[in-house]
Simulated scan of single mutants.
Amino acid sequence: MLNSEQAEPLYIQLKKAVQSAIANGTFNPGDKIPTEIELSANYNVSRITVRKAIEELVSEGYLTKRQGKGTFVNAHKIGRKIEHIISFTAACRANGLSSHSAITERKKIKADQETAERLQIQQGEPVLYIQRKRYAGERPLMLENNYYPFERFSFLMEESLEGSVYELLRDRYQIDPNQPGETVLQITLADEQQAKLLEIPIGQPLFYMNTIIYDQHSQPVHVGKQYIIGDRYQFTL
C-alpha cells in the first residue's frame, strides 16, 4: 500500500507499483490494466494521482492508451547504444530476454556495386547472403540481412547460426567484429514480405539500419541491412 507520510510523492509510488507489477508478470505485454477508478480504489489515492502516474508511464513507453478501450501494457523494448558494437543476442541478454534465430535464406550471390565497394571486393565477386529472423523471447523482433565476403566467410554456410554470429566468430574463428563503420538509421514501413516474416501488419513502422562492420584488423566483416520492429526497440546516442 502507498504511504502518504513518505517524502516521495504518491504518484511516484503508484508509478513504481505499476512498474513492479509489469516486471513481476502481474501485468504482461498486451494486458489491459485496471481503470483509473479501480486503481484509485485499490491504492486509496485520488484519480488525479492515478492520472499523473499513468501519464508518465505512457510517456516513458510502459503503457499505451487506446481511445475507448483502456490502457495497455507495451511489449518490452530492447535497448542498445547505436554507436556501440553489441550483438542482438547480447542486447537481449542485457535486457533480461532470451533470444534465438531462424535462417530464412542463405545463399551465394554476386556483389552489386554498392556492396562490393563497402566490402572492398570487386563488383560481381561472390558474397554470402544470410537472412535470419531474430526472436526476442518467443516473438520475432528483427529481420537481419547480412552480406559477407564469400571467400573469407564461406564456413558460415555450414554453421547453424541459431545464436550470435559475433560470438561464434570470436570464439571459433578468432574474428572480432568490433568496429562499426558508417551506420544509417531510418524509419520505414513493413512491406508484405517483411510483415509476413515478422508477424506484424503491413505498414507497421520499422527501424531500417544499414551498416558496415569491421574486425580487429579493420577488415570488412559484413554489410548489414536490418529491419527492426519500431515499437519494441529503442536506440540511444
Results as ranks from 00 to 15, higher is better:
168 L>P: 00
110 K>G: 09
186 Q>K: 11
99 S>R: 04
159 E>D: 03
200 I>T: 15
196 K>L: 12
144 E>R: 02
88 F>M: 03
13 Q>D: 09
208 Y>L: 11
235 F>L: 14
222 H>R: 10
226 Q>A: 14
75 A>R: 03
196 K>V: 07
190 A>G: 06
227 Y>P: 03
169 L>V: 05
35 T>I: 01
82 I>R: 05
203 G>H: 13
214 Y>F: 15
59 S>W: 02
156 L>K: 01
183 T>N: 13
121 I>M: 09
46 S>K: 03
110 K>F: 08
215 D>V: 06
178 N>Q: 12
35 T>A: 02
15 K>E: 13
115 T>P: 02
108 K>I: 13
160 S>F: 09
70 G>M: 05
195 A>W: 13
7 A>E: 15
54 I>M: 11
151 E>L: 09
169 L>C: 07
127 V>F: 03
15 K>H: 05
60 E>N: 07
130 I>H: 00
44 N>G: 08
190 A>M: 07
96 G>D: 11
117 E>S: 15
63 L>W: 02
26 T>C: 09
131 Q>T: 09
166 Y>V: 03
210 N>I: 10
218 S>H: 15
92 C>I: 04
110 K>A: 14
235 F>R: 02
203 G>A: 12
19 Q>F: 05
210 N>F: 12
127 V>Q: 00
42 N>K: 14
21 A>N: 10
10 L>K: 04
105 E>L: 15
64 T>E: 10
180 P>K: 14
10 L>E: 04
194 Q>A: 15
189 L>R: 06
32 K>A: 05
41 A>Q: 12
73 V>Q: 03
136 A>Q: 04
64 T>Y: 01
165 V>K: 03
64 T>L: 05
129 Y>T: 03
156 L>I: 05
11 Y>R: 08
178 N>E: 11
141 L>W: 00
166 Y>L: 04
18 V>N: 01
13 Q>W: 12
132 R>T: 07
188 T>F: 07
32 K>L: 10
5 E>I: 07
142 M>C: 13
222 H>Q: 08
214 Y>M: 12
167 E>Q: 07
232 R>H: 08
154 S>D: 10
61 G>K: 10
195 A>R: 06
159 E>A: 03
147 Y>K: 06
107 K>E: 11
129 Y>L: 15
70 G>T: 02
52 K>T: 15
5 E>V: 06
222 H>P: 00
136 A>I: 05
212 I>R: 00
126 P>R: 05
227 Y>F: 14
75 A>E: 10
113 Q>S: 14
220 P>N: 03
110 K>N: 08
112 D>T: 09
166 Y>A: 06
60 E>Y: 03
134 R>Q: 15
24 N>M: 11
86 I>K: 12
51 R>N: 13
173 Y>Q: 01
207 F>E: 00
177 P>E: 04
112 D>L: 06
37 I>R: 12
237 L>A: 12
47 R>E: 09
80 R>G: 04
90 A>V: 01
89 T>M: 11
74 N>A: 02
185 L>T: 11
217 H>Y: 11
56 E>W: 09
19 Q>R: 10
117 E>C: 07
208 Y>G: 08
170 R>W: 08
78 I>G: 00
198 L>A: 08
